[in-house]
Design a binder for these strands. Structure first.
Length: 471
RNA sequence: GCUCCCUUCGUCUAGCGGUCCAGGACGCGGCCCUCUCAAGGCUGAAACACGAGUUCGAUUCUCGUAGGGAGCGCCA
């Protein structure tokens, strides 16, 4: 039988890391088995669902590269189907109209809590013969009264709960709109889903859903409840506490490969391996090996992975992502070295593409002024001769490439009997305005000949001006 | 309150009764390399929540305790 999984978010916000990981696991499980990955939008709550959220989820999935095979299906477009099933259930006596007021339900619940028992509907309307007028009823599913619901969760193992803990849940509101626990079951049956992979906050819903499957004479799918993801401090992620959409990670300069790799290792491992390409994940992933414990998100480890991918992915590929950040920063890639060259030198110096953009600005646009401290320390009269000598040599370099440039600087240093620090640092400040940049040969290479010579000139002018001012 | 679930270094994890005075990774400390900052190499500190069982032997099995989470909606 074909493996069919689905990711079924409700569009009430962006796609956050927890959802993204669940989606990844669903995707992997399908791909690993040559199966089908379905995307379903659970928008039965018309109040809270928004088109923007739907788009945000689609964007996030696309950016991560988690392409679905079927869908997206929208529950809001399937109301007729749910109504049909509800109708059938009522006809078979497996569901019934309930006229109880919210007030009565509230009082019932309070009373039960007070008695120290679990609040549940008492079934008053199950056998009701009188039909109160003027009240639009809800429809309740008639849950079995006794016995246990037992299922073998792929990640949690056997879970058992007594039907006495469950009650008759509402499956349709007075206006006929269906509720979650009912729609998931109908959809998963209709879409022939074979494995339901979702957050473990749904564990408690599973038994009642299983009862609905049975009432519908449908075959049960397998269930796999994955733990949630906690914030850096181990506390639950919430809107006001660290919960950000995956697109925010793009904005912050992370590569989708890095996020995916980070996410797959959160709650799952394969021996001592840390690095997984999507292909490797597909080959190795095993839903049964997923941990049961909630895991805290670590931005530091994501940083490490991101740098790993900045360094190991083909420079061209990284460059294409970098280009987006350049545009965001208002930098024109055409005004400096090819981005793939830039990537080869900056990749092991930064953690993110955003950072790479920031530290590379100087190769694409002139800097405003010298960093005070750096200038004070390195742009002094003693460096005039070295800089001038260097400028002369650099003007003559035949091929402007790192090795030649390194030789040029070294030879000059030797001639002037200076150690590298004495010549490289002033040059660095002249070229970039700061005391920190890639190795001096690479810096020269990226800045380019014309720009390098002009900047050395500018630095010499700066030294002269300052000397004059002090005199 | 009731039900279900979870518990190995700061964090992510390996471990599926002896191979564990617990392995890897991130982070952190030290050393090396070095034109700055990184990167890299070597190296160090750092954990089985607690208590009873079962067993010749428990990180690994069972049961309690403590701590944590989720659910108990006409939200999903």
């Amino acid at each position: 039988m074909t493996v069919r999984t689905r990711f079924a978010p409700s569009p009430t916000g962006f796609l956050h890391v927890g959802g993204a990981r669940t989606a990844l696991f669903c995707y992997l499980q399908a791909r690993a088995n040559n199966g089908v990955f379905i995307l379903r939008i659970e928008d039965t709550d018309l109040e809270r669902s928004t088109p923007e959220s739907v788009q945000a989820i689609l964007d996030g999935m696309h950016w991560l590269g988690l392409e679905h095979d079927e869908g997206p299906f929208y529950q809001s477009q399937r109301f007729e189907r749910y109504a049909q099933v509800t109708h059938d259930l009522i006809g078979q006596g497996k569901a019934y109209h309930c006229y109880c007021s919210k007030e009565r339900l509230e009082a019932l619940r309070e009373g039960q809590m007070k008695q120290g028992i679990k609040p549940r509907y008492d079934g008053l309307c199950r056998e009701r013969s009188d039909i109160p007028h003027g009240i639009k009823p809800v429809v309740r599913f008639r849950n079995p009264d006794s016995g246990d619901v037992v299922f073998d969760d792929k990640v949690r193992g056997r879970i058992s709960i007594s039907n006495e803990e469950l009650d008759d849940l509402v499956i349709a509101r007075p206006d006929g709109s269906p509720t979650y626990n009912f729609t998931v079951v109908v959809d998963d049956i209709d879409m022939a889903v074979t494995m339901v992979i979702r957050g473990d906050d749904h564990i408690n819903n599973t038994p009642r859903q299983i009862n609905i499957y049975r009432a519908l004479d449908a075959q049960l799918p397998e269930f796999a409840h994955v733990p949630m993801i906690l914030g850096e401090d181990g506390a639950r992620l919430s809107k006001r506490h660290g919960a950000v959409g995956v697109m925010q990670y793009r904005d912050d300069g992370y590569l989708p490969q890095a996020l995916l790799n980070y996410l797959v290792r959160l709650g799952w491992s394969h021996g001592d391996e840390e690095i997984f390409s999507l292909e490797e994940m597909i080959a190795r992933f095993d839903i049964g090996a997923v941990n049961r414990k909630a895991a805290a998100f670590s931005l530091e480890k994501l940083d490490w992975l991101n740098q790993h991918y900045l360094r190991t992915l083909p420079a061209r590929e990284v460059a294409s992502h970098l280009e987006w950040h350049f545009k965001q920063a208002g930098l024109d890639p055409e005004l400096g070295p090819p981005l793939s060259d830039l990537v080869t030198v900056q990749a092991d110096r930064v953690k993110t593409l955003r950072e790479m953009t920031q530290v590379s600005r100087v190769f694409y646009a002139d800097f405003e002024r010298f960093d005070d401290e750096a200038a004070k320390k390195h742009l002094r009269p003693v460096v005039e001769l070295p800089l001038r000598t260097l400028a002369g040599r650099l003007a003559e370099v035949d091929v402007w490439e790192p090795q030649r440039l390194a030789e040029t600087v070294h030879v000059t240093a030797e001639e002037l009997e200076l150690n590298m620090g004495k010549i490289a640092q002033p040059l660095r400040v002249a070229l970039t305005g700061t005391a920190v940049s890639p190795s001096i040969d690479k810096t020269l290479w990226l800045v380019g000949r014309d720009r390098s010579l002009a900047r050395i000139d500018r630095a010499l002018g700066y030294i002269a001006a300052r000397t004059a001012a002090q005199a």
